[in-house]
Amino acid sequence: MIPQEIAALLAESFGGKVLESNPDALMAWSAVEPSSLFEVCRFFRTDSRLDMDHLELLGGADYKDRIEVVYILYSMKHHHRYTIKCRLPRQAPAVQTVESLWSVANWHEREAYDMFGIVFEGHSDLRRILCPDDWEGYPLRKDYVLPTSYHDMPV
């Protein structure tokens, strides 16, 4: 399926839950309501026309007024790709986990939690993955202030 068809299919199935779509961009994407993210992902994973069995990338991005989670999905069978975005408030970003759909999401979500402080509700083991467990702050946020010491050691 070409991105335009996927965007149309998504709009047809979820209607008002799709906030914005841009299938003509270099990287075609749709932004969906955080509350229906899991349903959208399940649709992409299970619908035989889409069959997105490969979660290529799950990552966050800080846009100063919001935090975005990006899900880049790919189908090994149909060889098509689509991106789902989810815009979250900077104060308390939280969204449902997609671990049950793609096992690899477990680690990707841990990384997004580690770097942006995004809480994935229902995650089986949400702890920091790259930074030490007692690290303070979320390094990839734009307003992150570099610490001058760690356990009294200057860094």
Binding site: L57, G59, A61, V70, I72, S103, V104, E111
Partner: peptide, 25 residues
């Protein structure tokens, strides 16, 4: 995954690492 805001520096660079995903398995 690269986000550009039109300046000379990337706004966001995210790397999908193959070893990271295989290690999760």
């Amino acid at each position: 995954y690269i986000v550009s805001d039109g300046s000379t520096k990337p706004y966001r660079v995210k790397v999908k690492s193959p070893c990271f995903t295989v290690m999760s398995a």
